[in-house]
Design a binder for these strands. Sequence first.
DNA 1: CGCAGCAGATTACATGTGTAATCGAAGGGG
DNA 2: CCCCTTCGATTACACATGTAATCTGCTGCG
Lengths: 121, 121
Amino acid sequence: MERIAEAEYVVMEVLWEEAPLTAAEVSERVPRERGWSLATVKTMLSRLLAKGALSHEEEGRRYLYRPAIRREDYVAEESGRLIDRMFGGRVTPLVAHLASADRLSVEDIEEIEALLKALKS
Amino acid sequence: MERIAEAEYVVMEVLWEEAPLTAAEVSERVPRERGWSLATVKTMLSRLLAKGALSHEEEGRRYLYRPAIRREDYVAEESGRLIDRMFGGRVTPLVAHLASADRLSVEDIEEIEALLKALKS
DNA sequence: CGCAGCAGATTACATGTGTAATCGAAGGGG
DNA sequence: CCCCTTCGATTACACATGTAATCTGCTGCG
């Protein structure tokens, strides 16, 4: 599975949210603050097709695009990559880090505790 | 703080481990499997200097390099970036994801629970 | 005192990425 | 039936990245 660049990821998000879509529809749904032209979106779509991250079917003389990889798989790969690089592949140090970096509120902690408890049973 | 590329990060790791070091010393410590020439390491060092991620002091006619940013800060930024992109900035979904992706062993879970308990007090 | 060798600086070059503009075909409106 | 619009395809172009090789200036060895 080829690497998806950050700008490309924006397009993937759109299509994971709703698919299939035409290029124009994707363009409409790209977050406004990106300020992308339709042309840019089309470039992203082609590159993602080439990378095998999207598939397309013809609808008249347009394409309908849809994801060819699952969001979970992509997220798993990316977060795994980060954990491997920064935390030697271990998850506990990541959580410890998040905690000490104040990314964890008391509510977070309680949610996670509940989650873990559920996991054990 | 400018973005540090993946290859550059390898050099940062070396210097976070031990500093200050000369270019040659850094080169020796770069993981063998990278197969980098000394020239490549020197390029990384210059780029990191330019980005302000390293500082250097002269020692004779060589430089001694040392990190100018803390590993903690870099890791915080990168993991924050991932969490924002993939989990809408919320940590709990990340942990949930890790759990469902089988990145959490029973021991992990117990370690994290202990960690969280300590955090609350 | 001259030169081999090492330091950093400069240059190289292919590929990836961000952000389009342009081109050629096709189809719909008048 | 012809032209304007709209598609996807092709081309553009600057900057980043990965991976070096070359250049230039000192410096210590002989």
